[in-house]
Simulated scan of single mutants.
Amino acid sequence: MARDTSSLQEAKMLLEVLKRIPLNRKISTTDLHQQLTAAGFELSRRTLQRYLKALSESDMGVQCDDKSKPFGYRRLLNSNDLDRVGLGADGALLLLLAREHLRYQMPPDLTNSLSYLFDAAENYMHTASGSSPEKRWLSKVRFVSGSLPLCPPMIRPSIFNKVSEGLFKQVKLDIVYFKSENEEEVQLRVSPLGLVQQDVRLYLVCCYEDTTQIRNLALHRIKKVELTSFIAEEPKGFDLQQYVDRSPFNYGNAQKVLLEMVFKNRQTALILRETPFNRMQKLEERRDGTFKLTVEVADTVLLTGWIEAWREKAGIISVKKTPIR
């Protein structure tokens, strides 16, 4: 019975290895071992090499590129691959949309562990008829920012990967950071607390060594990063969502105010009912046909910009801000 159990466990492990070998691109033994380790599987490199050799010499559709070292392995796709993983056209479409949305919001080790699904979905769309609804749908979905459109800054994949790994493993990071205020590079040791995406920018929320003061570091200004063996220190009671909610991210600790705004445009009232500032917002239509908005908000440049942008279209008559103590 013990032998049967051992054989079953080995078969399961072979399947885990197989599904992480990408389609039509190579992966090294080192990268594959890292993915398996991150997913919680205990497997030595020597055993993994033995499994890869067995898979590439069988009829499992695994090809080994041994022209140069390190060897690379890839899976050759056939028409039944999506059927094996239980995906249809709608699943392939959803996976490709999810991959783009999650690109900078999940640790690479986690998204890489799903690469076999992403590759299968991509191949499905590539081989689908040009007139298929799913293939055409990818060109019909876009994200439009409500702010002034800007090109995203360049973030080196190696930087993002190491920052994400440090955050995932909860260890301190040694970084070289470009400080824009005095235009110089500084060396810092930080405890990573979270990643926040604001429009096209991505920020590392962290604490400097020996301090609980929270900082926001732009990922595109990190020039070098190394993981340490020291456990990251998190300020007592820190919660990333609460930190972001305290005031609009990266605009300082703004004063809370009671905003009272009177305006004339009915369409603006509809928009504010559909997308309120918060759930405590009050909006009333007055006898003279005007509308009064009452809401507690942070008094930031974002709020000032919003009021000025809507002043003419909304027909704003008056704006009053009362500080909340």
Rank of each mutant, 00 (worst) to 15 (best):
L15D: 10
E16N: 12
S28V: 02
L36C: 02
L43F: 09
K53Y: 11
K53S: 11
V62I: 15
D65V: 02
D66K: 09
Y73H: 05
G88F: 00
L97M: 14
A98Y: 01
D109Q: 13
N112Y: 13
S113E: 04
S131D: 15
S132N: 10
R136E: 15
R136W: 06
R142P: 00
S145Q: 13
G146S: 12
R156N: 15
I159F: 03
N161E: 15
V171N: 01
F178S: 09
E181Y: 10
E184V: 05
Q187W: 10
L188A: 04
L188G: 03
V190H: 07
V196Y: 12
V196I: 10
R201I: 02
Y203F: 15
Q213T: 11
R215N: 11
N216V: 01
I222C: 06
V225F: 07
L227I: 06
S229D: 15
A232Q: 04
P235D: 02
Q241P: 00
D245L: 04
R246L: 09
A254M: 05
Q255G: 00
K264L: 09
E274W: 06
E274K: 11
R279W: 14
V297N: 07
L302G: 04
L303P: 04
W306F: 13
E312T: 10
T322F: 12
T322L: 14
P323V: 08
